[in-house]
């Protein structure tokens, strides 16, 4: 019981760092990659917290669709934040 919770703890701490990096990063493409990583970490936590349905719904949206759309939009607009 304790080990999975510790994994959750580690993953969520990592996600704080990634969220902070996303907010300070000037290159939006790299920020998008961080967001996709947060998605992966959260997917892991969902899995540990016994929510397989949410995993299946969240994985394609957070790790594929949204980053893909943001990358397409960045390609059509501007990559760097001023």
């Amino acid at each position: 019981m304790l080990i999975p919770i510790v994994v959750v703890l580690v993953a969520s701490t990592l996600s704080i760092i990634l969220a902070y990096l996303t907010m300070v990063e000037k290159d939006l493409l790299i920020a998008t990659i961080y967001i996709a990583f947060i998605g992966v970490l959260y997917t892991l936590i969902y899995y540990i917290l016994m929510a397989p349905d949410v995993v299946l719904a969240y994985m394609p949206v957070s790790s594929i669709l949204l980053p893909l759309m943001i990358v397409i939009v960045l390609k059509k607009t501007k990559r760097f934040e001023e």
């Binding site: 996303t22 939006l28 920020a31 947060i38 936590i45 969902y46 943001i70």
Partner: peptide, 22 residues
Amino acid sequence: NVIKKILALIIFSDSLNMLSIA
């Protein structure tokens, strides 16, 4: 930056969902 705002929204709503599963 508009896209930065949207990224922040994504972080916010994902963490909110995570919280409720917890």
